[in-house]
Design a protein around this nucleic acid. Sequence first.
DNA 1: CAAATATTCTCCTTTATCGAATACATGTAT
DNA 2: ATACATGTATTCGATAAAGGAGAATATTTG
Lengths: 107, 107
Amino acid sequence: MMDLLTRREEIILLSVWKLKDGAYGMSIKDHVSQVTGKKWLFGSIYTPLEKLLEKGYLISEKGEPTPERGGRAKVFFILTGEGLDALKNLQKIYEFLWDDIPALEVR
Amino acid sequence: MMDLLTRREEIILLSVWKLKDGAYGMSIKDHVSQVTGKKWLFGSIYTPLEKLLEKGYLISEKGEPTPERGGRAKVFFILTGEGLDALKNLQKIYEFLWDDIPALEVR
DNA sequence: CAAATATTCTCCTTTATCGAATACATGTAT
DNA sequence: ATACATGTATTCGATAAAGGAGAATATTTG
């Protein structure tokens, strides 16, 4: 073990996928905070993003600055084929792990 | 962030649940290795098990030694109500995260 | 005491967490 | 026009927690 995605890598990768062409640091931070119901800070976003770039699961692309007052240029992130494969691999493992756990669904 | 289960905690907690009254170090190790398709070592099992006890997600129970030649007594693990809640919480987050990701399902 | 099974321990690397510091673009007052 | 204020976004750095590998130790029976 274990070349599986870490928890944060999983959550961030899925967020990038969901946000499509609008995935950059801040929007990812907001999205994962909303989804998980907890407040995420910068460090918890940019560090794994960096790692995901290294692994080739994401690529980044410098965007234009916002035309509003203030607004440093965003860095957008896009899921690669390898990133998608990593998610598929995880999904397959989840099938085995979570399948046949009926008692959890009753509440 | 983040009081969410870590990846290993999740996998091990689910394995304990699946193995019912037969969950102890070695059987958990074999189960997670089989499910994830990777070889897990002792350190990757007993350390998080200890953590899960501390968190109250598991309780342990000393078993009888195996009647075969050799066989130190096993320590069995049982999921608590809190442990089940932690899994349910994770399951709920997965719903949001993984829902509406149709492209992943094609393969 | 030999052999088999199970767990504990130790060392080291990698992730995770938090928030201050910095960068960058634009509005505004002089 | 130019300095400074303001709003957005990212980089950095320090510390804590989790992950990873496998040797060492304990326990039980032949």
